[in-house]
Design a protein around this nucleic acid. Structure first.
Lengths: 336, 336
DNA sequence: ATGAAAGCGCTAACAG
DNA sequence: CTGTTAGCGCTTTCAT
């Protein structure tokens, strides 16, 4: 490996000068700058980031912690966050936990070893580091912050969003409304799940409609779990005319399952989704859903994190992103 | 920040002992190990990876270079590759180029600064570093290697795969077969595109079927481009009875476009895909396609890369992965 | 404008 | 089994 010393010798200057060539080129005279530049080219020298980072004690990298990079919503969040990171000179490390708390914890310990300057967490696990009042590693939670969290956060108002999409169904004339939501068996129940259920119930309550526990189905946000849940709908003798579903993928699978059982959507049963991933538009029928602006959320979260890292003065660290209700084809008034 | 020195003082041992506590704990007596462990806990010490990496000159990290993390096939590749990386103690940096050669080149220069020990490239751009006979940074190309590449590679036989899926159509009785493939306007034409077209043409030729350039449509592998391509099919007075499409997403969009124009699939036109992403199964009709084992490819590529990095003796560095033809519903015999 | 030198925090001989 | 010490490659005062 060619080092800064090689270049210094080659250019007949001190290592300090070579260092300046990269970090403060304007402090060099034209002549020396030229000589150094030549040496750099001849020797094909690239500064060693490891060494540089060590004495700057900055890694110039951030980590994004998430459960599953193959989730299309998360992938879009990562893509947009990643873009602002590179634009600002940072690398991004993937912290894909594959839904394992152990793996996520392992990532946290790597983070503590300073391989990154901060992290974005897109999951709801709570780690010691996040509770430690002496913690110095910046982080922001995206989408999944417990509602009482005191740390930086970027999220939509899931309660309101879920309430609104439910109200849309009610305004369409539905009175018998079921839901298909996430399950609650985690150590740290997903705030997303909690809030979306809460919004659903709020809407019913406000309109004086009874919540039927027997119409409350559970899934894990996947297409498959939606497909499977459809089975239970068939078994219902008194069937809802509409379902609020906690994610587009699950809604898509649910619709597919319903159709395979001969139940038409939206003619027999209306279905709504959540997230507005690309597939929502291409599902048949196209999904009426809540749009969560993945791109914007990724950008805002990364922007916030980098500001935190760079010590910029911050106005606000708990940022609410506005959602949208997207009306397409999967919901219509109930048959008389 | 608490450093190794703090711990050493606290435990009344030398820094070397503390270092050994982490790298070779069995070389310590029970007593000292205990003392050090206590100090570590009390001080909440975590070794600084930056410093460690510097004098080991190893980053314990690898980069995955790709065009778009929101591509479901790539996301699955990354997820599986990532899994073997963490299992072997490495972090993975995302090199998401957003289809920009400049960004990819920028990542390459970061790589040269030694922030990672090696990289997997899932794109077809050729960089100086890859041609440099003196290059010491290990890398492997996944899926997208030019066929004459001399460097490590993991890929399926795209020519054979494309030929086989075309033959399936021919065996079904189709004689008028069109295709929807990628375009060739890149500096480094995608070998994937080249090979899939070649396989398509080979199949026709072997069966003595004429290749009709006017039935050759172009897209960019996206759902949208498939949808748009369907428009051109309507305009054809002499229409093929089947199309070989270069990716599942594009095939899916193509089918959707066809259906929106009143052309039934597969009754009027058969369509095949490529990749077998999850959506292929859920598309309507479900896609007959070539299965490219994303999970396995990611694992093999990462395994190979880490072996390379760790200097393990290698039997083979150009690895061919077997594909499968998956028969579902989107292809049937042509109407008489 | 440039150089000398003291580290950044840790590892790895080499001694003992 | 444990300690001493010389770096890893670079940045950054402090002088000049």
């Amino acid at each position: 490996m060619t080092t800064i010393v090689d270049v210094a010798i080659h250019a007949n200057v001190s290592v300090a000068t070579v260092s300046r060539f990269f970090s403060a080129p304007d402090k060099l005279s034209k002549k020396t700058a030229l000589r150094v530049g030549e040496a750099v080219n001849n020797l094909k020298y690239t500064p060693n980031a490891l060494a540089r980072n060590l004495n700057r004690s900055r890694a110039n990298a951030v980590m994004i912690l998430l459960n599953d990079i193959t989730n299309p919503f998360l992938a879009r969040v990562v893509a947009s966050a990643d873009k602002v990171a590179i634009d600002r000179g940072y690398s991004v490390l993937l912290g894909n936990s594959h839904f394992s708390q152990d793996i996520e914890a392992n990532y946290i310990s790597r983070i503590q070893s300073r391989v990154v300057d901060g992290f974005i967490q897109v999951s709801s696990n709570v780690h010691d580091i996040m509770l430690d009042p002496n913690n110095t590693i910046p982080f922001v939670n995206l989408c999944e912050c417990p509602s009482n969290a005191h740390y930086p956060t970027v999220h939509i108002d899931n309660v309101a969003a879920s309430r609104e999409i439910t109200e849309l169904l009610i305004n369409l004339g539905h009175q018998k409304i079921g839901c298909l939501m996430g399950i609650f068996n985690d150590k740290y129940p997903s705030p997303v799940t909690v809030d979306r259920l809460k919004g659903f119930q709020q809407a019913l309550q406000r309109k004086g409609i009874k919540y039927h526990p027997e119409w409350h189905l559970n899934g894990d946000y996947s297409f498959e779990s939606g497909f499977d849940a459809a089975e239970q709908v068939c078994a219902m003798q008194n069937r809802p005319t509409a379902f609020v579903v906690g994610s587009d993928e699950m809604a898509s699978g649910f619709i597919r399952g319903l159709k395979s059982k001969g139940i038409r959507v939206p003619e027999d049963v209306s279905v709504t989704g959540f997230d507005d991933i690309p597939m929502a538009r291409f599902s048949e029928p196209a999904l009426t859903t809540v749009a969560q602006p993945a791109k914007k959320m990724g950008e805002v979260a990364m922007g916030l994190l980098l500001d935190l890292i760079e010590g910029k003065p911050l106005h606000k660290t708990q940022i609410k992103i506005t959602h949208d209700i997207v009306v397409r084809e999967s919901a219509m008034p109930p048959k008389a």
